[in-house]
Design a protein around this nucleic acid. Structure first.
Lengths: 200, 200
DNA sequence: AGAATTAGATACAAAACTGTAGCTAATGCT
DNA sequence: AGCATTAGCTACAGTTTTGTATCTAATTCT
């Protein structure tokens, strides 16, 4: 027989996974506004017609891909090392932000069309779990243990670490080193919860 | 005569200003990736051909518009009211971020194509002066006056306010109230420079 | 083995955008 | 008043993207 295809034909979840991966790569490369069914299809090595069977436009594909991303690893506070745990939490956040999914989320947030289409459900999934939970988890743990006054753990304080990491990523583009993250912890987070720069 | 035009014909700076305004409105509405010469021209009520006489593609128009924006108002530290001056500085920042120019900058930063074309000069102009200077100016002023130890005014500390405002704008989309800004000052900035939540 | 799904390959007409060209006429300058 | 500049208008061919339709054939299910 012809054997012109060589690779076996993908179906169902396998194919969908390939398309999801493709759209995330594509958006990082060309931006949300220049996403096309054609471009996604080309990258996933599938014809456009296959895409139209499931989604009605490129942004739907993108939002669907994000919705089905694996959840990010949660920070797990360790053996009493508040400072170290905070640095680790921020490191997790950096890893996510630099992943295709993280970059795609950044692109979506500043794109009028996709931002408008972003469902409540996706926003929850992407945000409540990623945007601001990394250090909050750790801080809550140690506040519960009485390491610092729980009333100091306000929404503002819970956001300090993520906010500074985000700003640094925007400003420099380069991934922060562990020293950078430690500086954020020592100079901004710990003072806000009443622990001086010397870590106990 | 025909009088079919009614409005007098625009030339030079007047026309360019109209085009700059148009591209900023357009990018807020459709996003960077969907900018077109056609769309900009339509909004500025000028034919595409006029645009091509000066710029080679929509992103050039956008970058040029940003380059010619009026600089943002600088915070001017007042009569010893550190806390109040910080709130005012953040208010200035919010105003800028919500302006067409501010939104356009956000859009550009997450767009691969335009980010690549952003010149050193424009980056300086847009960033060094806007991205992170609002609270730094105020803090520097009071550090010089000895109101707090100057060595606490690190790059991280100078970014806290802007970072938290940015995150809030991203998360909620809504403009922060003065109370929100005060919370940022009291709970994050002041502790970082060694001044407890009670303002002196 | 046979039936039902569903991916892959074309093809195609409609729309949008591009870049260029050529003409007309309003504006500013001397 | 006359000249140079430049905005506004129209046209057009080429490209990209869009949706849809149609057919073939690989895979899965019973």
């Amino acid at each position: 027989m012809g054997d012109h295809g060589a690779r076996s034909r993908r179906r169902g979840d396998e194919l969908i996974k390939a398309i999801h991966d493709a759209v995330l790569e594509e958006v990082v490369e060309v931006g949300v506004g220049r996403l096309t069914m054609d471009g996604i299809g080309r990258r996933a090595a599938t014809p456009r017609t296959t895409l139209y069977r499931r989604w009605s436009d490129p942004i739907e594909v993108l939002l669907d891909a994000l919705y089905h991303q694996h959840p990010v690893e949660e920070p797990t506070p360790g053996a009493g090392d508040l400072r170290g745990d905070l640095v680790k939490a921020l490191r997790l956040m950096v890893d996510w932000a630099l992943s295709p999914a993280g970059r795609a989320v950044a692109a979506i947030l500043t794109d009028p069309k996709s931002a408008a289409l972003m469902s409540e459900a996706l926003f929850e999934r992407v945000f409540a779990n990623r945007g601001g939970t990394f250090t909050r988890t750790v801080l809550q743990h140690y506040a519960d243990q009485g390491r610092f006054p729980a009333e100091l753990l306000t929404p503002v304080v819970a956001d300090i670490g993520e906010a500074l990491v985000t700003k640094r990523l925007i400003d420099t583009g380069a991934p922060p080193t562990d020293e950078d993250l430690a500086a954020i912890v020592d100079q901004a987070i710990l003072p806000a919860i009443g622990l001086g720069s010397r870590h106990p």
